[in-house]
Amino acid sequence: MTPADLVPLLTVGAVLVGVFGLLIGSFLNVVVYRVPNGLSVVSPPSACPGCGEGIKPYDNVPVLSWLVLGGKCRSCREPISARYPLVELAGGAAFVGVAWWWTASTGLQATPTAVIASGLGLVAFLYLAAISLALGLIDLDVHRLPDRIVLPAYVVLTVLLGTASIIAGDPGALGRAAIGGVVLAAFYLVLAFVKPGAMGLGDVKLAGVLGFALAWLGWEELIVGACGAFFTGGLFAIVLLATGRARRGSGIPFGPWMLLGAWIGIVAGAPLADLYLSSLGLA
């Protein structure tokens, strides 16, 4: 099969992944609102916050329904925040981006065993992308990283990435991931004790999840991802201070920057590390 023959297949795959991402984004809107309030994410069905009218299935199509309704409830015409379709679009874009990155990084696998291992890895990072969106928005909204999302991630990623490692004949990746998770969580725990209030226990728990995923890919990804959080978060804080939008001591949630830094490490950790070492003449 030539590269030209793969174009239609990859295009169809990207569309399917994007549509699935839109649907996940729609669900994430529910998660972001209900989880911090201690509500179930499955019941009751979604309803208009203004009139309480249940949302019909044909009014719950990601992005399209919001556009058709003009951003308003069909029943009471109460405005519906543009954040809903934006989160749905973010879900679709994130899933397509992760699938593209994974395919470019691992290539198309030739054997059934390799396909299964690669598929499990892709699912793991799609899952990480989904909870990253949810946790980032929740932390911005309420300055919390709920255990209901963070703690299950340990189990899900261990099962998916651990199984992928064993099937691919690379059990060392699982051991490296475990070390990375422990080290990064311990680092954040020390920061939380050294400077109370700067880091919360939610940050510590999330650090373990991110350290696990980053180290599974490699040590370079872990180092870049960990440093990326402080670089992007620090840069943002400087901008806020310089523009007068924040003062010293202002509470700025760090979770979104941990997640952003981690994804920088996931997607570009190895080349960024090589570029840095080359600039020092060490590579």
Rank of each mutant, 00 (worst) to 15 (best):
L16I: 14
T113L: 15
G21D: 07
F193G: 12
S132R: 09
I238A: 14
M258V: 05
A153Y: 04
G71T: 03
L241Q: 10
I223V: 15
A134F: 11
L206A: 11
V267Y: 06
P8N: 05
M1N: 11
S118M: 03
D59A: 00
P85A: 00
V142Y: 14
V182M: 15
R148D: 06
N37Q: 13
G251K: 14
I266D: 01
G172E: 11
Y84A: 06
V204K: 09
L6I: 11
L64E: 04
P49T: 07
A229G: 06
F95Y: 15
G261A: 07
E88F: 00
A110Y: 10
L16A: 15
I55H: 00
D59T: 00
I131A: 07
A4K: 00
D59V: 01
F230Y: 13
R148P: 08
V19P: 06
L201D: 13
V142L: 10
Y276D: 07
S46W: 03
I24L: 13
G211F: 07
F231N: 08
A130N: 04
T111I: 05
W219Q: 00
A47N: 03
S65H: 06
S65K: 00
R148N: 08
L282F: 13
W101P: 05
I264A: 05
A117M: 09
R34Y: 09
A273Q: 10
A242E: 12
C48K: 02
G261K: 01
P112K: 12
F187V: 15
P8F: 03
P271S: 10
S165I: 01
P152A: 08
V19C: 03
A47Y: 02
P253W: 00
G91D: 00
L133R: 08
V190N: 10
Y188S: 11
S250C: 08
W257C: 04
A168R: 03
S43G: 11
G211K: 04
N29R: 08
W263A: 04
A213F: 01
A93Q: 04
T163I: 10
G197K: 03
A173Y: 05
A178R: 02
L189R: 13
G38A: 04
L160V: 05
T2P: 10
P44T: 07
L275C: 08
I179L: 15
G265F: 04
P112H: 08
S40M: 10
K56V: 12
P152M: 06
A47C: 08
A268P: 03
I266L: 13
G13Y: 07
L89N: 05
E221F: 00
G38N: 01
L151Y: 14
L206W: 02
T103W: 15
C73V: 11
G169R: 05
L39H: 11
F236C: 13
S40A: 11
V183G: 01
L259T: 06
G218F: 07
L69Y: 10
L189W: 12
I223E: 06
V7C: 04
C227P: 02
L191W: 12
K205N: 09
L145F: 09
I166E: 05
P45W: 02
A124H: 06
W219I: 08
K195N: 12
T106P: 00
P152T: 01
A4W: 15
A207L: 00
V35L: 13
I55P: 04
C51M: 11
T113D: 14
F231R: 09
A198T: 12
V96S: 03
A93H: 05
